[in-house]
């Protein structure tokens, strides 16, 4: 299973670079524009996106072992809505022991910080990811695509509105 995944990932990587090479000037322009317009529309600077990405890695690596460098966090246009797309190449799911250890470590940290409300949400994400791993077919070379929670969509929409209001 792990080997198959790895094989698919490698093949997928080469396929990706191939298509990138043959990308036309028009496609490059469209893709670059989409990214830059998302940033223009949401006020999320590249620095903030990078910070968000890092925090995601930190959070999710408690539950799964993943390819941290390949994790992609992008804003995408979905019709009139702006969606936050998170793509996580999972190397393997951590076993119960490891998750427990990570969580305990987290708990001790959180006791210091005096905030523990986010724990429930994290468990939800954990379940989602594990489900995805089980459902992932062998031939699927794509990394798991996870559509981020609705509230994150909402918040980016709100930011959009805020921006327009201010203007």
């Amino acid at each position: 299973m792990i080997l198959a995944n790895l094989y698919n990932k490698v093949i997928g990587f080469f396929r990706q670079t191939e298509t990138q090479e043959t990308e036309s000037a028009k496609e490059t322009a469209c893709n670059r524009l989409r990214v830059v317009l998302m940033q223009d529309r949401t006020n999320l600077t590249p620095e903030l996106m990078e910070r968000m990405r890092k925090e995601m890695v930190e959070l999710l690596s408690k539950y799964v072992e993943m390819d941290k460098d390949a994790l992609e966090l992008n804003l995408e246009q979905d019709g009139d809505q702006v969606a936050l797309m998170l793509s996580i190449p999972v190397i393997r799911a951590k076993d119960e022991e490891e998750i427990k250890a990570a969580l305990e470590e987290e708990e001790t940290k959180e006791e210091i910080k005096d905030e523990d409300e986010s724990l429930e949400d994290e468990k939800d994400i954990d379940e989602d990811i594990e489900e995805d791993i089980e459902e992932m077919p062998e031939e699927n070379s794509d990394p798991i695509e996870e559509n981020e929670e609705e509230d994150e969509k909402e918040s980016s929409k709100e930011q959009l509105k805020d921006k327009k209001d201010r203007e």
Binding site: S24, A25, K26, A29, R34, L37, Q77, G79, D80
Partner: peptide, 18 residues
Amino acid sequence: LIKSNDMMSVDDVVEILS
């Protein structure tokens, strides 16, 4: 230029700007 995929097409621009 649009035909040779060197320039964004009308549809591309309309879609991007909705």
